[in-house]
Design a protein around this nucleic acid. Structure first.
Lengths: 343, 343
DNA sequence: CTGTTAGCGCTTTCAC
DNA sequence: GTGAAAGCGCTAACAG
């Protein structure tokens, strides 16, 4: 139990009242310059830290915002966080990051912890499991601005910032088709994710527009919640696809983990890219260009998503009475490399 | 300003006293089952969240620990955080992550924010700029357990968990020497970092033990604090090295960013790996095996570093009177791939 | 079983 | 200019 230094300690040491010390530290007008200096120097010397719990209790809320993400174990999320961070820093707000690890329960606890700790706003990218948004809605009603980013949901009314996944997926699939591929498999993340669904739709749009019939056996969902089983699952999915009588000639992969995982698995199983199988994937890995072969990607404006989400949050913070919610989709960018070279 | 629901609100609504409501929610022994149920159901229905600032003020500190890292924009850090997270979750503690962005000032603010918010322990990997540890020391004296991880420092007495960087660097350099390379350049991160220093020492140890004279012109520091200038700096460093009359035949790279950056830069400048220049680097990128060519790496037990650091923290939390500090170095692992094939 | 009361550390009127 | 006192929301004696 850490015994912190309190205002009272300083007051006693300096033979002043608690009120005076408080005012001196907050640089209040009506405190003698001499006293002010004495107090401030003493406080600095003993590394006094005001108890934010007491301060927050008294004064309302704290200059901080919280963000809840599932995991930051990939570059895409890290970039979004950087975007959020840049805005918060410029506004003089502290950013508190918590991981939900794809667990709805853990997510609830994070949200509660953050709210109970006095954040002024919340940025969240929900877990796969999350379908009940009543907790968030309740907090919103209590006046807490909430912004969803990346993974969005219709279940809640709020500002939402994400990538235009459907369009990105459409373009990626079209690119493969234009390069002569016709049997395009789609490997993607957990079906419950909004982003997975949108990407699937984009993929199907492209097939339809190109008069290619959608073959359900070419669609594989890989649950990347558990990274231990994920690898096995992915390897199996690929094995199944590649033993089809009508083998696919290209993969469109719908997530970061699946994309890089596929390249790894394909190489391990002895397939050549793009000769045996072409591939393009949704991933922001900065290493795509030094893969063997360089990996074509659908690149998401991760930093911008984070930035915009944070800006929306601060805007909502300003106007208090939030009602005119907005959903914004940012454009993705096709980065064509050797892995999807013309057939 | 979010207006939260308080115990008083519930008390009034249910015609009870605040104390009774509090006890009912904490499932206290001496509350009627009926009342308890009524209170709990009502609280859940209106999504009551206890104000942690008030709670913390009253009861001491909160079940949470803080971690301050510079950036989580790389896999190594993310893995360490996962290690920390796993321990915290199993102990029922919340983990609050804050980024210092290599700024000493920002770091100070993070630490202050966390402490003021009532964390019970602190895990920290200091910034490049950090040389004054008096803030941390003061908090320690106030009873806050502090554990350093990855980036360590002699300037403070605390538990410290890191990789055996010197040995890892020694092994990597030896590996290159054993494979026939003699002009081994060392590109590494900011000189101020303890880990950079240790890796440099390991590199020099290996040269000495192999009777190869250390050539200062083969040593390049690349400041990766600013990722915009970093790329330029790295490209220039490589250009300088490769235009030496006594050109290097191998690189030993001392950090995550430098390692992958080097591969990129070398390829861009048209050098073949390992024919023109071999390379082995300190990095935990999960993609090393699908690089072109697959990149030899010194792999750090990132998850374990995080795990051990967190365990040390909880141990210190238990015994209160921390004094017998320990520094633990975990072994790194050489992962030999094609980029450092025999000359 | 439930209510009353005090106090955690801080800020902020209101006195002097 | 400085001090005294109230109160933020909560918990924990102490009463009843």
């Amino acid at each position: 139990m850490s015994q912190s230094i309190t205002l009272r300690d300083i007051a006693i040491a300096l033979n002043l009242s608690v009120a005076t010390v408080s005012r001196a530290l907050r640089d209040s007008y009506d405190i003698g310059a001499e006293t002010k200096k004495r107090v401030q120097e003493y406080a600095a010397a003993i590394h006094y830290v005001p108890n934010r719990m007491a301060q927050g209790l008294k004064v309302g809320r704290t200059k901080s915002v919280g963000v809840v993400i599932c995991s930051m174990n990939n570059n895409f999320v890290a970039e979004m966080l950087d975007g959020i961070d840049s805005v918060c820093t410029s506004k003089g707000y502290q950013l508190i990051i918590m991981q939900s690890k794809e667990s709805y329960l853990q997510e609830k606890e994070c949200i509660e912890w953050l709210f109970a700790g006095g954040i002024e706003g919340l940025l969240i990218s929900p877990t796969v499991e999350t379908s009940d948004f009543s907790q968030l809605a309740a907090l919103q009603k209590n006046g807490l601005p909430v912004v969803l980013f990346d993974r969005l949901s219709d279940q809640i009314n709020a500002d939402k910032i994400g990538a235009n996944n459907r369009k990105g997926a459409y373009e990626a699939t079209m690119h493969l088709i234009n390069n002569g591929y016709r049997s395009i498999a789609h490997l993607t993340a957990n079906a419950a994710l909004s982003i997975a669904d949108e990407r699937l739709k984009g993929y199907q749009d492209a097939l339809r527009d190109s008069n290619i019939t959608f073959r359900p056996e070419l669609l594989k969902f890989c649950d990347y919640t558990n990274s231990e089983t994920a690898k096995v699952e992915l390897n199996q999915a690929i094995a199944e696809l590649m033993s089809l009588s009508l083998q696919p000639d290209a993969f469109f992969t719908g997530s970061d983990q699946v994309s890089t995982g596929c390249v790894k698995a394909l190489k391990n199983q002895g397939f050549r890219i793009p000769e045996d199988i072409a591939i393009i994937g949704f991933t922001n890995t900065p290493h795509a260009e030094i893969f063997s072969p360089p990996l074509s990607t659908v690149h998401q404006p991760a930093f911008e998503i984070g930035q915009l989400a944070a800006e929306k949050l601060f805007a909502a913070l300003k106007r208090k009475s939030a009602e005119d919610y907005e959903t914004i989709s940012l454009h993705t960018e096709l980065r064509i490399r050797a892995s999807s070279a013309p057939k």
